[in-house]
Design a binder for these strands. Structure first.
Length: 509
RNA sequence: GCGGGUGUAGCUUAAUGGUAAAGCUCCAGCCUUCCAAGCUGGUCACGAGGGUUCGAUUCCCUUCACCCGCUCCA
């Protein structure tokens, strides 16, 4: 253990305040509130110069690990995955088939007294024949209703009431309704529709506009191109299609910085395989995806592989595992980072029916068996990944002037190195400029000349630059530079012509 | 979406019914041979809109944004 760590324990048990991370992100140019100078807009964020670099690094590594050099499969052969970039706006029918439009835009009502919210179609209303309050309950099984009546029914029995769903009741009668758990009647608000998809109109003239939707996930773009890819790219079962891109959801309540925002970025891969093999591939991808997040720098203690319980599964899912991360705002609990789902043939079935296009696969390696492939979907949030990287990297250290530093892995760090002449004098600057011009061909690096060296180290600490190369009098004399390592603040000297090789090795990890 | 809280510069804080002060940061210059030193100068704020008033950052209303709790997250 280092001396510094003995005198003042850096961060291990200090609770990290999300506010400090948000402040650093703004101060150093990682993430800004969207439309900041207009007062902001809820649920949207702009990525600044460094945030963009960080996001691109994570995205590129994902693309590399999926498409460029995908993993070796269980049989020892590299798996086959191709890339895709589908349109954000598709035929609206796509979202009807996927279930995003129609079934999920249920009206909701709020109770002003208890502040609870209910789906309007989930509330059962018992209407008495006299002018006593109408009784609302959240379940319609008989025992539950009887128990509810025992409490508030004033001795009446179930047969004294007419039973209706809230959706069948006119809003003008809402003032007679006693909401669940409420003491006063008439506390329910007017039902409001929640459609999580952003609507837009196609067509320049207002009259002729056709309603379309911004995609709520990138996955559907893959499913609807499954046949195109199959017919054009010489892929065969099993194979995957990967896509990175923006998705949009009208979240009811954007919260927690970029964790839940209305515009976000996803990295999704749909793995198509024979139904019999789906469970095997589900386990394979669970393990691969876990490794991915560890490689980009997340501590395994902060990652949780959480299999969904049977009652938590969406009806079509044959198994779902969330990869969760311990964000500061969920700590000690975890929040979703990626979901890996065995979706069966649900999506292809839906699109086959709605589009009336056959999507079955004729498998020559299985005696020309015809089947709808099953799908394993590792769907990660790119912007959530960025948030996890930021949270993981944020390290409080009272021993250094910045008070905290960003402990990114060299591969993820927005800047790989900074070239710092010790002084702004003539003897140091030209050497620094020369090194900078050489290194920038290969690495994202900074050249910083102004101000004293301590301030410049502090700035690089805060943006998470792993290495600083300092040019001093010895550089002039013997051609060596100081390497200053971010986490330990330790220094060593290496030859100036070995700097590129040094960096290359460190980034490779 | 509901309830509560907050809103003066990038940050931390002042003052005031007569349009705002300071420290740090930041920028420029000087100085500086290794961790936010020093000197000089400079940029930058009353979240937005409306009302009351001769005059509003201050009082009132609305709105926006952020934080906390609930809800939601297909």
């Amino acid at each position: 253990m280092s001396q510094a760590a003995q005198t003042q324990e850096p961060s291990e048990n200090t609770p990290i305040d999300m506010k400090d991370i948000v402040a650093l992100c703004k101060r150093r140019g990682f993430i800004f509130a969207a439309s900041d100078i207009y007062g902001g807009i809820n649920g949207f964020w702009d990525y600044g110069p460094l945030g963009t670099e960080l996001k691109n690094n994570l995205r590129d590594y994902w693309w590399k690990s999926m498409v460029t050099t995908p993993p070796i499969g269980p049989d020892g052969v590299p798996v086959q995955i191709v890339g895709l970039d589908s349109a954000i706006i598709q035929n609206p029918e796509v979202w009807v088939a996927s279930g995003h439009v129609g079934g999920f835009s249920d009206p909701m009502v709020d109770c002003r007294e208890t502040q609870k919210r209910y789906r309007a179609d989930h509330l059962v209303i018992l209407i008495p024949s006299d002018d006593t309050p109408w009784i609302a309950t959240i379940e319609d099984d008989e025992d539950f209703l009887k128990a509810r009546l025992k409490k508030v029914g004033k001795g009446k029995s179930l047969s004294d009431f007419t039973q209706k769903n809230l959706t069948e009741i006119d809003f003008s009668d809402f003032d007679k309704i006693l909401a669940p758990d409420a003491k006063e009647k008439g506390t329910l608000t007017e039902p409001k529709e929640f459609n999580l998809l952003f609507e837009t109109g196609i067509g320049a003239s207002a009259q002729d506009k056709v309603t379309a939707y911004l995609r709520g996930e990138t996955a559907q773009g893959i499913f609807i191109n499954y046949k195109n890819v199959l017919d054009s790219c010489r892929v065969k079962m099993p194979f995957g299609i990967a896509q990175v891109g923006k998705a949009f959801r009208n979240e009811v309540n954007p919260r927690n910085f970029i964790f839940r925002s209305r515009e976000f970025e996803q990295m999704e891969m749909e793995w198509f395989c024979h139904p019999d093999d789906a469970p095997k591939w589900f386990e394979f991808w669970k393990s691969e995806r876990q490794k991915f997040w560890q490689t980009v720098g997340l501590n395994s203690d902060n990652i949780l592989m959480r299999d969904h319980d049977a009652d938590e599964l969406v009806f079509y899912s044959k198994g779902t595992c969330d990869i969760e991360y311990k964000y500061p705002f969920t700590d000690p609990d975890f929040g979703e980072l990626e979901g890996i789902a065995n979706r069966g043939d649900y999506d292809l079935t839906q699109h086959q029916e709605h589009s009336k296009t056959k999507l079955e696969y004729l498998d020559p390696e299985r005696n020309n068996e015809k089947y709808l492939p099953h799908v394993i979907e590792p769907a990660a949030g790119l912007t959530r990944g960025v948030l996890a990287l930021l949270c993981e990297a944020y390290t409080i250290d009272p021993n250094r002037p910045s008070g905290a530093y960003m402990n990114f892995t060299p591969a993820m760090a927005p800047k790989k190195a900074a070239i710092l002449p010790l002084t702004a004098k003539e003897e140091h600057v030209p050497l620094a400029q020369k090194l900078y011009l050489e290194l920038r061909e290969e690495f994202a690096i900074d050249l910083d000349i102004k101000q004293n060296i301590g301030k410049r180290y502090a700035r690089q600490d805060e943006i998470g630059t792993p290495y600083c190369f300092t040019i001093d009098n010895d550089t002039v004399a013997d051609g060596t530079v100081t390497v200053r390592e971010r986490n330990t603040m330790a220094q060593e000297r290496i030859a100036i012509d070995k700097v590129a090789e040094y960096l290359r090795e460190k980034i490779k990890g």
